[in-house]
Design a binder for these strands. Structure first.
Lengths: 221, 221
DNA sequence: GTTATGAATTATGAATACAAAATACAAATC
DNA sequence: GATTTGTATTTTGTATTCATAATTCATAAC
């Protein structure tokens, strides 16, 4: 008897594929904020008709990544200071909740894995490799989110962080701030290990507030 | 010199209109959870072609109100107990944040207006008019949300509460629970007037947790 | 009688066609 | 020369058409 099970072949609808690709392009900054997105152009680029592209655009608009203006097309959503001021406190509240829930549900194995990621992140910090640092940072946050065992929460967090992600690449942290962020991460990990949910919530909220300040400083200079 | 300014006439795209109407129908329970939504049928009902309808469906799917399954159509999203368990803590966290922000920004005029709505709500409670009570309840929550001065937060709250709103009509509160909810509202209003943000956050979080219990009790009986 | 197979029907996915609005541009007026 | 007005072009919104996958139903095999 075979253990192998034939994987169900599934062709994704074009609008899904398109939404994913465009989302990636926007979030990663390949499409600049404010940039006009002409349907005809994108259709030619992706080799599809306008119908699935327009469907994908409706999705991205609902996610807040794109702005649709009736009869005059579509543009990549701009990221204003006000947007950041609004988004970060929300992310703080959601992270705090994730932390609380994670304290309740996280396994020792997951904690070990986070510790490992954290150690690697510190190495990247010491090497001054900001990009790698960010990547590991995100993985840690993602693991905490998973440990919260609340997919709805995870999805909302992902959606919000996608929107503000573009701001990160503008933010070139000062050495002092970077140092502080690493310290905060140390404390967060400790507190998570102690499963001290109340304190973790406070720490995560503060961490996000500091992050906002970092981004804002970078933007206003 | 005339003060009057000609209001810009604007015809909304069909997909917007459709999304709004369908959203309303789902949230108000006119379309039952799990109900299959055949494109052809809806097109005839609304007198539109499939293109704008499909665009509207993509929006509703992104909002989590509808479930799209490739090649086999669209159905109203079901609301499971797990969904409620996931959504309510998030709503609690967001409400708590709204409360904190509202304490900072709310004006005395807004507080007066909330007091007025609250008084009317208590009258409805005493009359046993659950539907009217809910309506006023929602208006109060909406006003707190507005006072938070964070449109992104307001939008997320609205979206989430839309998803779980259907559960409310299933929930026929027990007299004891209803009494408790009214008491909680009294305390919330007091605390908001005192602009005690920390305490308000705690109260709102608890209030939502109790609401979840109410809904769950109603569902499991 | 039950299950399996295949044709017919129906529904969805995607492309094209048509309509209407917005934009670009040229000509005319001051 | 600047501004306005009318026309052509382009772009977006919607309907229709075609392609393909799913479902239904009738038939055949066991």
């Amino acid at each position: 008897m075979s253990i192998e099970v034939a994987a169900p072949i599934q062709r994704r609808p074009l609008h899904n594929e398109l939404a994913d690709r465009l989302r990636h392009m926007i979030v990663e900054g390949e499409l600049a904020p404010g940039e006009k997105l002409a349907e005809k152009e994108l259709c030619e680029q992706f080799g599809v008709s306008r119908t699935p592209l327009r469907e994908a655009m409706k999705v991205l608009a609902t996610e807040g990544l794109v702005l649709l203006t009736p009869n005059r097309g579509c543009a990549v959503a701009k990221l204003t200071l006000a947007d950041l001021d609004e988004a970060f406190p929300i992310m703080g509240a959601l992270e705090a909740l994730s932390g609380e829930l994670a304290c309740r549900h996280i396994t020792d194995a997951e904690l070990d894995r986070i510790q490992e990621l954290h150690d690697r992140m510190v190495v990247k910090y010491e090497a001054g490799a900001l990009r790698d640092y960010f990547k590991l940072n995100e993985q840690i946050h993602q693991m905490i989110l998973d440990a919260a065992r609340n997919p709805t929460l995870a999805q909302m967090q992902l959606s919000l962080s996608g929107r503000v992600r573009r701001a990160r690449y503008m933010a070139n942290m000062s050495p002092a701030r970077w140092r502080k962020a690493v310290d905060e991460h140390e404390k967060i990990l400790e507190t998570l290990k102690a499963r001290d949910s109340k304190r973790l919530a406070v720490l995560l909220k503060e961490h996000l507030a500091n992050k906002l300040q970092t981004v804002k400083d970078a933007l206003t200079e």
